[in-house]
């Protein structure tokens, strides 16, 4: 410590007393405002450490006097949000499906809730907005294997399809590779193509008509109009779940692919399933 503070002769500023090669360091202290801000920050941090969770230990941390914690805060906010929605949830739980659709408040809530639940649970297979993808039915069109009324959709959602459940919708198309000759399969494919007016081999289709009547008409209908009670898809329209080319149809007859859908009543609560029903029904193909 220098006993006497030396002043620089040129600038008139005080020096620190440090000297290198005759060059003396000027004493330029931190600005006052900066220092006070710094002290204020230290004071703030001390108060903060006492009031809020701060110091980590091996498995936890100091809880803080206020007991605040962002996770607790989130839980509170979620509970608050749920409480705000409670009235709407109760209304959905109490209402029949048709009542949900006829009441504007219920409908708005159900469509919003249904859209959210759909995105979480259904969109992975059925696509956003029910756009579908090969092997997974489009929900926005007007073709329904198991029916497109509110009640039909509701039952499909509750119990699912071919999942082994007692009440699940179930249908099983046999693998005709083991039953029919390859030529018969080719012929019946041509006949199926003819049902929807697609390009086909006329002679082959004529031969296939008989095979169709014996093997297929029971489930798919005499004219390919389908049979919803048995889950027999309609064949005389332009909707093909597993593809509408001749090869794809042959392949489906030989070794059918049979889609599975879980029953959602085991995973979702009744009101959510109702909202999903109304939402799916609203996608554009809903039937009365």
């Amino acid at each position: 410590m220098p006993t006497k503070i030396e002043k620089d002769s040129i600038s008139g500023q005080e020096t620190t007393g440090h000297e290198w090669d005759g060059i003396k360091e000027l004493n330029t202290p931190l600005p006052r405002w900066w220092l006070y801000t710094f002290y204020a920050c230290i004071a703030f941090s001390l108060v903060y450490v006492i009031l809020y969770p701060a110091i980590p230990s091996f498995s936890s941390h100091t809880p803080g006097v206020l007991g605040y914690n962002s996770r607790v805060e989130l839980e509170g906010q979620l509970a608050e949000a749920r409480a705000r929605q409670a009235e709407s949830w109760d209304a959905i739980a109490a209402a029949e499906l048709s009542e949900i659709r006829s009441n504007a408040d219920n409908l708005t809530f159900a469509l919003a809730g249904g859209a959210a639940a759909f995105a979480d649970n259904c969109a992975p297979c059925h696509g956003q907005g029910g756009a579908g993808r090969p092997g997974f039915p489009v929900l926005a069109d007007d073709a329904w294997i198991w029916g497109g009324s509110l009640d039909d959709i509701h039952i499909t959602l509750l119990h699912g399809i071919r999942n082994g459940g007692d009440e699940a919708r179930d249908s099983e198309m046999p693998a005709y590779a083991d039953i029919l000759e390859p030529e018969q399969i080719e012929a019946v494919a041509d006949y199926v193509l003819s049902l929807s007016g697609a390009e086909h081999d006329g002679t082959s289709a004529a031969a296939g008509q008989e095979v169709y009547a014996e093997n297929c008409a029971a489930c798919h209908g005499d004219a390919g109009e389908g049979l919803r009670e048995l889950g027999g898809p309609r064949l005389n329209d332009q909707i093909w779940l597993y593809g509408g080319s001749r090869d794809e149809i042959v392949s489906q007859i030989r070794q059918p692919r049979l889609g599975v859908m879980p029953g959602w009543q085991e995973r979702l609560d009744a009101s959510t399933i109702k909202m999903l029903t109304v939402y799916v029904h609203s996608l554009g193909g809903g039937e009365e």
Partner: peptide
Amino acid sequence: HDRNPLFVTLSDGGIRNG
């Protein structure tokens, strides 16, 4: 215009947009 689905093929072959 709806983006998802962009369009829907209906059973009669018609195309629907939302």
